[in-house]
């Protein structure tokens, strides 16, 4: 199954990346390229919406961690939207729930971001 990756930027300068499909060793490069491309374009505040992700493995986790390192180098942020228990479980197993901000919705993430300002 192909991985679909689309993005848009909100009026509060947050770039939302909608990901749909399976993120694994085959498809993860596509997400990695998108994250690198956005950072190269000066987009340093990223929110990855994973609500339509059907599968995520450690390669996908590695890509997200790589993206986080890249945006942090520019004082940016990379957070996630995810409510699927089977995806959240992988973040818990690897301890990455402590690394990423994980929200129930894009609106929740934006609200949190406004409070931080």
């Amino acid at each position: 199954m192909d991985l679909k990756v689309n993005d848009y930027t909100t009026d509060d300068d947050l770039t939302v990346i909608n990901v749909e499909g399976e993120i694994d060793v085959y498809t993860a490069p596509k997400l990695r390229e998108k994250l690198i491309d956005l950072v190269n374009k000066g987009k340093y505040h990223l929110l990855v919406d994973m609500e339509k992700v059907e599968f995520l493995d450690s390669t996908g986790l590695g890509v997200l961690v790589g993206g986080l390192k890249r945006v942090r180098a520019h004082d940016g942020s990379l957070e996630l939207v995810c409510t699927q228990e089977r995806i959240l479980k992988i973040f818990r197993i690897t301890g990455l729930t402590k690394v990423f901000g994980i929200f129930d919705s894009v609106d929740d993430a934006r609200e949190h971001r406004q409070k931080q300002k």
């Binding site: 993860a28 493995d57 450690s58 590695g62």
Partner: peptide
């Protein structure tokens, strides 16, 4: 190589296997 770079130095794959 590319795939190694994707996974970083985290060795997350084994953490996932051991956890599952």
């Amino acid at each position: 190589v590319d795939l190694t770079e994707l996974n970083g130095e985290l060795n997350l794959g084994f953490a996932v296997i051991a956890g599952l």
